[in-house]
């Protein structure tokens, strides 16, 4: 298990795998104001990313993994107010 529940925060650690997606979903849907901490997470499985993209929980801490920090955090940020497309180029 790469999912550790810490109060209202789900901490994803190491390499979250496909079997972490379902408990993560259950936790995030289990109550209001629940968030996720990706700072200790390495490569995220697509199933886990799907849950995060669908629910867009609050993110605590940054991302320790450079790929997550550069490519995934922008996608998981709260949707911009005008509903724009995310920028295509991040540099």
């Amino acid at each position: 298990m790469s999912l550790r529940i810490d109060g209202d925060i789900a901490r994803l650690e190491g390499e979250p795998r496909v079997e972490d997606a379902e408990p993560l979903l259950a936790f995030l849907q289990g109550g209001p104001g629940r968030g996720v901490d990706l700072s200790e997470a390495g490569p995220l499985h697509a199933a886990v990313l799907g849950v995060l993209l669908a629910l867009r929980p609050a993110l605590h801490g940054g991302a320790g993994d450079p790929f997550n920090a550069r490519w995934l955090l922008p996608l998981l940020a709260p949707p911009p107010l005008e509903g724009d497309h995310p920028s295509l180029f991040t540099e």
Binding site: L24, L25, A46, A47, L49, G50, L53, L75, P86, L88
Partner: peptide, 23 residues
């Protein structure tokens, strides 16, 4: 150089099905 990940179908109201890839 650029990456975008989006749902293929709108996410269901009740939340995503974690066993289906909808990306």
């Amino acid at each position: 150089v650029a990456l975008h990940v989006a749902p293929r179908q709108p996410w269901p109201e009740a939340g995503p099905d974690p066993f289906t890839c909808n990306l």
